[in-house]
């Protein structure tokens, strides 16, 4: 069977967020492959190594830098990439993004070709957690989000999700969407020889016109949500030191918890 991994280029986890007015200052941001997507790619590669999957396609929507994220996934062992880039996509929310990913997926053969659709459960930038489920809904197939285990037997998959105090086990008929999280696997470091091989792996490029998508149905115009502005969280205020004899300190602390924090 064939697998597709949907990936995103996101700011490095160590990025210190800076604002220019109420917009993000992206000038010094370094971008990486979304860490959660690495679980998806790693799982696909393991399924390929186990002889279950025979081709892994990586799809990403985004500006030129998205190609770097695709290349990273190819270096981990995926076979080829699909990059959707178009200025009109700027401002797309999760819904508009899912729509475009679905069209690109269909262009590559869609559900006739692919049985395994893998995502990271969330992207660490927008953090909406919604694109995997939206893609599944648009394609009319099941989705299991937040999996820590995935076994495939023929056209059936067993996926495990952690819930408070236990595990949730799903039996799903393929094709289906699975979104991975920490615990699913330990993503490999791409090796130098594989990075060199990734250079030669093909990446198909699509514009909106190639996918037959009307620009007014994506980007800001085609989105249900819009980011109005960004704000940094308020700076943490200095703490207060309670000093004195133990009896006095306890009394003052209780008073503080009762009156100011109001937790008692």
């Amino acid at each position: 069977m064939k697998a597709v991994c949907f990936v995103k280029s996101v700011p490095d986890t160590e990025t210190r967020v800076k604002l220019a007015g109420d917009r993000l200052d992206k000038s010094e941001i370094k971008y990486i492959l979304n860490p959660y997507d690495e679980f998806a790619v790693e799982e696909a590669v393991r399924k390929k190594e186990a002889g279950i999957v025979d081709e892994i396609v990586v799809i990403s929507m985004g500006p030129a830098r998205a190609q770097e994220a695709i290349r990273s996934a190819l270096a981990m062992g995926a076979d080829r990439g699909v990059h959707i880039e178009d200025d009109a996509l700027d401002g797309s929310d999760a819904y508009a993004t899912a729509k475009v990913l679905v069209e690109a997926f269909k262009k590559e053969g869609g559900l006739d070709s692919f049985q395994l659709l893998l995502f990271g459960q969330r992207a660490i930038d927008g953090d909406t957690w919604t694109v995997p489920s939206m893609v599944a809904e648009m394609l009319g197939i099941p989705a299991v989000v937040g999996i820590v285990k995935l076994d495939i037997d023929g056209n059936k998959a067993t996926a495990v999700r952690m819930v408070e105090g236990g595990e949730e086990v799903f039996e799903v008929e393929l094709p289906a969407v699975f979104a991975g999280r920490k615990g699913l696997n330990e993503p490999r470091y791409p090796s130098l020889p594989n990075i060199m091989k990734a250079k030669r792996k093909p990446i198909n490029k699509y514009s909106l016109a190639d996918l037959g998508i009307d620009a007014s149905t994506v980007g800001k115009a085609g989105s249900f949500t819009e980011v109005l502005k960004y704000e940094l969280p308020p700076a943490r205020q200095a703490g207060r030191k309670v000093e004195g004899e133990p009896e006095e300190v306890v009394e003052e602390l209780i008073k503080f918890l009762k009156e100011e924090v109001q937790v008692l």
């Binding site: 370094k30 290349r71 270096a75």
Partner: peptide, 27 residues
């Protein structure tokens, strides 16, 4: 190199060069 690239050499690196550097750093 991460956090010290005042002259913007990053833009002259290929995708593979960045991946090799970043992978070695993570390692």
């Amino acid at each position: 190199i991460k956090n010290v690239d005042f002259m913007g050499l990053e833009e002259f690196l290929s995708e593979e060069e960045k991946i090799i550097r970043d992978t070695t750093r993570r390692f």
